[in-house]
Each structure stands twice: as structure tokens, then as C-alpha cells.
Simulated scan of single mutants.
Amino acid sequence: MRVYLTAARLSFRRYITYRSAATAGAITNTAFGFIRAYILLAVWREKPHIGTYDAADAVTYVFLTQGLITPIGVFLGSTELGPRIRTGEVAVDLYRPCDFQLWFLATDLGRAVASLLLRTVPPVLVGALALPTRLPGDPRRWLEFGCCCAVALVISFSLRYLASLSGFWTLDERGTTSLLMVVSMFFSGMIVPLVVMPGWLGGLARVLPWSATLQVPIDVLLGKTTGGFADALVFQLAWAAALVALGRALTSAARHRTVVQGG
């Protein structure tokens, strides 16, 4: 366990040093938050209630998603593994005396914590000060939200890890990861809350793993989950376990498929 904590700590130190880039990213996320918020306010003006959301819920949702974009990795198509497969550096990773999958999960955790500290609070705070929002005052709700976000990161990592592993077969994972990024943006609720999606499309979106990365944690914070925190967490944990298990199976298969380019 110590080696994974060290990997997470060193990854955190690496990402926390880019403060200027993080500041620029936080400003950009906040600006796009206002653009998205005013678009949704126009929608909710025509229909004051969509699903269980009203206008204040929609605005809160927007700024929370803007704050979670980077920590959860919605705009990331792969993990650090992908480029290492392309360059052949993965050969070194395979020789490390530790679990291959857990190593990259630890480095992704360090990245996420650094992003959480640098880029999450500004969009949420500015949005709450400028527009009507509905952030809860109950500490327990925030604790439940934090638990859901932790599992959401594991799900996001697992999806990106699977996309990265495709490089063992294709030698270039960028096509797969680009497709994953588009799908993630749509089905996670990054573009619009999933309550906006009608009929069978909305139903499908809610049972896919991407909904567990953004929509489910925010629904827990806003108190919009049908079965409460317990059902939401079980849903997330089921997807996390399935995706981690699939990742381990593909990792084992990839070890027998490894081809280092140029040699």
C-alpha cells in the first residue's frame, strides 16, 4: 500500500505545481459556467420544472459540473498509460514490482486531488454568489456527496484506463479515447442534466456508467435521488466493481499482447 500512496503523493506534487495553468482553467470553467447557466435558465423559463429540477437546481448543477470537470476527468480520454504505450515506456511499467492497474489509479488520484484543490471551488463559489443556487447546508449531504465523488473518480478512471489499454492492440489509443471523451460528455450530464433527456434516451443514460460520474453525485447533493444515498452508492459501486474487474482482465490479456514499437 505504501508504494501506491507514494505514487499518489508524487503525482499530487507534480500537478499542484501548475498553479498558473490551474488559475486560467478555473477562470475558463467559471466563464463557461455562466454561459451554460444562462442557456439553461432560458430553457427553465419556458418550463419551470423539468423532472425534479427547477431553475435553481439547474444553475447549481451547472456550476458543480464545471467544478468537477477536471477532478473527475470528464474531458480526459485516457490515463497516463496511453502515451506510454505509444512511446514504448510501458515496458518499464510492466517490470515494476507492484500492481499495474493500481499504480495508474494512484497517479490519477494524485492528479484529481490537486485539481480539486485548485479548480473546483472558484466556479462553485462565484456561481453561488452571482446566481440563485441551492447548495445544501447539511454537512451530512456534503459527506455523502464526497463519498459519491470518490467512487465517481474510480469509475471515470476505469473507463479511461480501458480506453488506454486499447493501445496494446492498436498501438495508438487516441481514436478510442477521443470517442470515449465525446460519449462521456453526453452521457455523464456534462452538456445538460440527464433529466432533460426524454423517454428511452434519458432512461438509458441513467443506467450507463457515465451517469455515475457526474449526475449521480450531484443528485445526491441536491437530494434528487429516488432511493436516497444508499441506492445511489450501490449503483456506483456496482459499476466501479464491474469496470475494475474488466480492467484487470484486459490487463492480463495485454501482458501477452505487448509489442514495443520499434523493437
Rank of each mutant, 00 (worst) to 15 (best):
F32C: 04
F34L: 08
F34I: 03
A37M: 07
I39T: 06
L40E: 04
L41S: 10
L41I: 06
A42M: 10
A42H: 11
A42L: 12
W44P: 11
R45E: 09
E46I: 04
K47F: 11
K47M: 12
K47G: 00
H49P: 00
I50Y: 11
G51P: 07
Y53Q: 15
A55Y: 11
A58G: 12
A58I: 11
V59K: 10
F63E: 13
F63R: 07
T65F: 12
Q66L: 14
G67K: 15
I69L: 14
P71R: 14
V74M: 10
V74W: 08
S78A: 12
L81E: 11
G82Y: 02
P83L: 10
P83I: 10
I85C: 08
R86W: 04
T87F: 06
E89V: 02
A91F: 05
V92D: 13
D93F: 08
Y95I: 10
Y95S: 13
Y95P: 00
C98S: 15
F100Q: 01
Q101P: 00
Q101M: 12
W103A: 10
F104A: 06
A106H: 05
A106V: 05
A106R: 01
T107V: 15
T107L: 07
G110N: 05
G110K: 04
V113C: 03
V113L: 02
V113I: 07
V113D: 00
L116D: 01
L117K: 00
L117Y: 00
R119D: 02
V121G: 03
P122S: 03
V124D: 04
V126I: 15
G127K: 11
G127R: 05
A128Y: 12
A128E: 06
L129A: 15
L129Y: 13
A130C: 15
A130G: 09
A130L: 08
P132W: 03
T133N: 12
T133Y: 01
R134A: 07
L135S: 02
L135V: 05
P136Y: 03
D138W: 01
R140C: 01
W142T: 02
W142R: 09
L143Q: 12
L143P: 04
L143G: 12
E144G: 11
F145R: 08
F145V: 03
G146L: 15
C147N: 01
